[in-house]
């Protein structure tokens, strides 16, 4: 039996999640030892044809060509892992979903002949069946390594869906909202980053997308107590995970009020 093969695919994205994989540095040799890296454009021009044991997919679907390409990836892959906010929620480029994308094209390009893009940016799971989703902008390299290890060992990956607050308290970080009056999306954002931003005395900006339970109405009330207007909360919800259903619904609800 040969080694399992790993392919890394890029769709509409900034390559930051692929860089997280490269950023594993001292673990890269272990990974290369455990799997054959068949396709990884950020790292190498080498390419091996499928089928693949695991495909890591970065980026969202924004063109008709990519909508076809992702189906080909699924077809050749035993397991598909969507990595990052673009692949799991449509990314920051999903802001176009709230606007007229044709108008953007007309404004930006003098002769938009070669522009063939979809009106929306959508997550991979809107197009194919996804086995595992890794949140974040970018993904946590610890989670990425854990998922690869879990798939190789046939165990459950450690992907908690509770909020960032749990990781803050585990780290002994005092709450930036309670002790600093800083706007923080931590209570409604999924854990997994290790509470990086609050540990640096900043509010969480929600790059891991909605936690399993999202009570934005209550958070909005608290932000107002801190002197932060609803408009700022709407903008905070409309970043990397603007199209994640729970954030999209919440920002629309606040705007409608």
């Amino acid at each position: 039996m040969g080694k399992p093969s790993l392919a890394v695919w890029k769709f509409a994205s900034c390559d930051g999640c692929q860089l997280s994989l490269l950023d594993l540095e001292d673990r890269l040799l272990d990974i290369a030892e455990a799997v054959d890296i068949a396709h990884f454009p950020e790292a190498s021009t080498a390419h091996a044809d499928g089928p693949y044991t695991v495909s890591l997919v970065e980026g969202s679907i924004t063109t008709p060509r990519d909508a076809d390409r992702i189906r080909a990836v699924r077809h050749q892959s035993e397991l598909v892992v969507a990595i990052g906010a673009c692949a799991t929620a449509g990314g920051i480029q999903a802001l176009r979903n709230l606007a007229d994308s044709d108008e953007f094209v007309r404004t930006v390009y003098a002769t938009p002949t070669y522009i063939d893009s979809l009106a929306t940016s959508t997550p991979i799971s809107d197009h194919i069946e996804v086995d595992i989703e890794l949140r974040g902008c970018p993904v946590s390299k610890i989670q990425l390594l854990d998922v690869v290890g879990a798939l190789l060992a046939g165990r459950k990956p450690d992907l908690p869906t509770y909020p960032v607050c749990i990781e803050c308290k585990a780290r002994g970080v005092s709450c930036v909202m309670v002790a600093g009056g800083i706007a923080c999306l931590g209570p409604i954002t999924q854990a997994g980053c290790g509470a990086i931003c609050p540990a640096y005395d900043r509010g969480c900006y929600g790059c891991f997308g909605p936690a399993e339970t999202v009570n934005v109405a209550s958070l909005a009330w608290q932000w107002r107590e801190l002197g932060i207007e609803d408009e700022a909360l709407v903008r905070s919800l409309r970043t990397f995970n603007t199209a994640a259903p729970a954030f999209a619904a919440a920002s629309a609800a606040i705007e409608d009020r």
Binding site: K169, P187, T213, S218
Partner: peptide, 10 residues
């Protein structure tokens, strides 16, 4: 009002 964030328990 509860965010179900778990801060109280932690």
């Amino acid at each position: 009002r509860c965010l179900a964030c778990g801060n109280c328990t932690q």
